[in-house]
Amino acid sequence: MSAALLYPFIIVAGALQALGNSMNTQLRGQLVNPFLAASVSFLPIVFVFATLFLVMPTPLPGLDTLGGMPWYAPLGGVAGAVAVFGGLAFVDKVGAGPFNGLTLTANILTSLAMDSLGLFGLPGGGFKPMPWLGGLLMAVGVTFIARVTPGQDASREGASGDGASQETGHGLNPRLLYPFIVVAGALQAVGVVWNAQLRGALVNPWLAALVSFLPVVFVFVLVFLLRPKPLPRRTDLEGVRWWMPLAGLTGAVAVFAGLLFVDKVGAGAFNGLLITANLLTSVALDHFGWVGMKRVRAGASRLGGAALMVAGIVLISLF
């Protein structure tokens, strides 16, 4: 099969990844407790992949592949879940565009560092100037997307008649949250590499996805049992829409796409397509206020920042 035939699926996966972060935010708002929301978000993923594995249990791993599996490979889902939890807690505070822009930039810069240094079993490619120039363009682009302060938000929203501000913030100084979001993006990149190693060791992609997500559900359920408050009220639960618990599944499409397609289309093309679709969808979510997001018009700053990030992704993908 031609690798180009897989591109539409990867683009859809990137768009769903951005959509999933915003859907998780709405789920978090209705369920109140972030650990309960995370558990509800991830449980359908485990159910779906467990069902698929029971239906298609072969091929199974052998002792040779299991023996070569690094100890950290099953933790790839946990590393990637940090970004999902960040989306639950912070997307509505900083906006889909800035959140995804920061996580994507941290993700790609971490990926470049792992490729250059040969970390986690990757072949060390050494320093290549063009991909790092692309990373620099992405970093500049995300500063344009995330540059507006809450003070500007309040003043401009008050001046606009329709409640939608031009290039606005989201009510909390986003700079206080940026370090956590950057770390989440870096862990997301590490998680992709660990998941790929897990897929190689377990052979069966359904089993690999199941093993990747099981520790995530265990952690969130355990934390919720230890810290069960606050709990949602009846009025909160009545506000849960049918699509909110599906937030985790939308994001899991990108994880599973990585398990299946990275070795077929190449890491550069896969990440380039996935990130571009994610970024453009994020800006659109803010601009149109879809799935309950606060509206933030895609003015010159955001569109220019998105263009710089796409240019950076192209350099990284091609070189």
Rank of each mutant, 00 (worst) to 15 (best):
L214H: 07
F213H: 04
N204W: 02
F218G: 13
L187G: 05
G185F: 02
L231M: 12
E167W: 05
R227M: 11
D162P: 02
Q197L: 13
W194H: 11
A208K: 01
R175Y: 14
R175G: 09
F180K: 00
T250A: 15
R233G: 14
L237T: 06
E157H: 05
G248C: 10
A208E: 01
D236G: 08
A208Y: 03
K229F: 14
G185V: 03
W206T: 01
G239F: 04
Q188A: 11
V193L: 00
L246H: 09
F213W: 04
V216R: 09
P205W: 00
W242E: 06
D236Y: 08
T149L: 03
R227L: 12
V182M: 02
R234E: 10
H170F: 14
F180N: 00
F224Y: 15
G239I: 04
L246G: 13
Q188E: 08
L226Y: 09
L187T: 03
K229S: 15
F220D: 10
L176K: 14
F218A: 15
I181M: 13
L202G: 06
P150K: 01
G239H: 12
Q197F: 06
P179K: 01
L210G: 02
F224L: 14
T168F: 03
R199Q: 15
A196F: 04
R156T: 02
L177T: 07
N195M: 15
I181N: 08
Q152Y: 00
P215C: 12
A247L: 11
L210P: 07
A196H: 12
L222Q: 05
A164T: 03
Y178A: 15
P230G: 12
V192L: 10
M244P: 13
T168E: 04
V217K: 01
G248D: 12
A159D: 06
V240H: 00
W242K: 03
L214Q: 10
A146H: 08
V182D: 00
I181A: 06
G169I: 01
V142Q: 04
L214W: 09
P230E: 10
